[in-house]
């Protein structure tokens, strides 16, 4: 780290951690590269882990994506199904008679 960037890092830390050591704010996990990629739309994607979001496989089914991922040496990836269209969610599902 260069001397010129040190003050900015310190300011960032002070801003994010209060005196009691609690986290004041966090950066949202950026999933835009996954949701925004057209080849993943409507498919299950497998990421290396919850922490490492590198895509290792994608497929139309969960079984398929887990199989592909296992072949690449990641038997327990973090999985997610990407919708065809990314639309805002307003309300949820409800159980009907």
């Amino acid at each position: 780290m260069s001397n010129s960037t040190k003050p900015f890092c310190l300011i960032y830390l002070v801003y994010n951690i209060n005196l009691y050591g609690k986290i004041y704010s966090m950066k949202a996990i950026d999933m835009r590269h996954i949701y925004g990629n057209k080849k993943y739309r409507g498919r299950w994607v497998a990421m290396k882990s919850h922490q490492d979001l590198e895509i290792v496989a994608y497929d139309h089914t969960l079984k398929g994506v887990l199989g592909k991922s296992a072949k690449k040496g990641i038997p327990h990836p973090a999985v997610l199904e990407i919708p065809d269209k990314i639309l805002p969610i307003i309300g949820g599902y409800r159980i009907v008679e």
């Binding site: 966090m26 996990i29 950026d30 999933m31 835009r32 925004g36 990314i86 805002p88 969610i89």
Partner: peptide, 18 residues
């Protein structure tokens, strides 16, 4: 435990947990 939101698009961030 503290988790962070997920940024889905430039306009949408959601409280999604691992």
């Amino acid at each position: 435990m503290t988790f962070s939101y997920q940024r889905i698009t430039s306009q949408i961030s959601r409280p999604i947990l691992p």
